[in-house]
């Protein structure tokens, strides 16, 4: 990284000629500080690298905004935002509304959070308030392994193992012979498997936040005669609540943007249904199917993926910013 031009030039045979040629040049003056000049260039490179991160964000927004505008020049915005059906048709005249997809996304995310939040939160409480340090040092990394497993693994698990298992329970020829489930792919299949994946997202963050609650609050509560669980319920959790909400929002943003589990486990039917054992489709699965199909690129059926992508980006970004704001606000209280 450090380059010192003067001594290098003198050492090489060509140097004297070069030096004579530029004898009037600024670099040959005694007052010239080569180090400062070189470092100015270096710092330029460093700034460029830091700017790339911003450039990525700009690139994401611009590339999607451009194609989204293309899409809206071909397809009515009213149908996209307020229409009620999703029926892409490669001969044109498709109904492309985001609402049924958004319903699927939110429903599956809700099921996932319904699994992840209680399990994650109780795990965090147990790890930080009850567990011995040995249990904690074993269980915490093991739980975090769940977050390190690639999502394709969860997707395959949902498709091949968990979905058929649910069908064996609730399907027409299933264990309970209820006939509630016709396809192994469903809201519950994708949602529950996604919930398992999200457990460590909730538990790790909540654990950190619960640990950050000052011990003096607990001691005060014990001193007044509260039991451990009463202290947790009435003192620790309320103090940690903003941070926990932040953790849950981050998990929700993960759930909304998750792709592989829903592509393999949720199905492809866009509709409004409240039955968790039926198949639904999500924003991310439709992005994948519209962009990996054989359709003409400049058709609304393909370009709709960019509008969906932009919506997804705005939605998750909003959630993240909101979550970070919440966590920050909490931190200020005890420092």
């Amino acid at each position: 990284m450090m380059i010192y031009p003067r001594p290098l030039l003198v050492k090489s045979g060509v140097a004297p000629v070069a030096v004579n040629l530029f004898s009037n040049c600024k670099t040959n003056q005694p007052g010239f500080r080569a180090r400062n000049q070189v470092e100015k260039i270096n710092i330029g490179f460093l700034m460029l690298a830091a700017g790339l991160a911003v450039l990525t964000t700009v690139g994401i927004v611009v590339s999607m905004l451009f194609e989204t505008m293309n899409f809206f020049s071909m397809h009515s915005g009213r149908d996209f935002f307020f229409g009620l059906s999703w029926a892409p048709n490669f001969h044109g005249n498709s109904a492309l509304s985001i609402l049924p997809l958004l319903w699927g996304t939110l429903y599956i995310s809700f099921v996932a959070l319904l699994v992840a939040v209680p399990l994650g939160l109780f795990s965090a409480i147990y790890l930080s308030e009850y567990a011995s340090s040995l249990t904690r040092s074993m269980a915490k990394p093991l739980l975090e392994v769940l977050a390190g497993i690639p999502t394709i693994v969860y997707g395959l698990f949902a498709l091949v193992t968990f979905g058929p298992f649910l069908k064996d329970m609730f399907g027409p020829e299933g264990f309970f012979a209820l006939g509630w489930m016709n396809d192994a792919r469903s809201v519950a299949t994708a949602g529950i498997v996604m919930g398992i994946m999200l457990i460590p997202f909730v538990s790790s963050l909540s654990d950190d936040i619960i640990n950050a609650v000052p011990q003096s609050l607990r001691d005060g509560s014990f001193g007044l005669g509260a039991t451990r669980s009463e202290t947790i319920k009435h003192v620790v959790l309320p103090a940690a609540l903003p941070g926990i909400v932040g953790a849950i929002l981050l998990a929700a943003s993960r759930a909304i943007g998750e792709t592989m589990i829903v592509v393999l486990g949720a199905g492809a039917i866009a509709r409004f249904t409240g039955n968790p054992l039926e198949a639904l489709t999500t924003v991310t699965t439709r992005i994948v199917s519209q962009l990996t199909g054989d359709g003409d690129f400049n058709s609304p059926e393909t370009l709709v993926a960019f509008a969906l992508g932009l919506t997804l980006f705005v939605l998750t970004l909003g959630l993240n910013i909101f979550a970070l704001y919440y966590v920050r606000k909490y931190r200020e209280q005890y420092e």
């Binding site: 990525t56 999607m64 943003s253 998750t316």
Partner: peptide, 20 residues
């Protein structure tokens, strides 16, 4: 910005790659 980019869904990066 960097903190937020870390939480952008991976599929959005795929769309970016396709477009750019």
């Amino acid at each position: 910005n960097i903190a937020n980019l870390a939480a952008v869904p991976s599929i959005v990066f795929g769309i970016l790659g396709l477009a750019i």
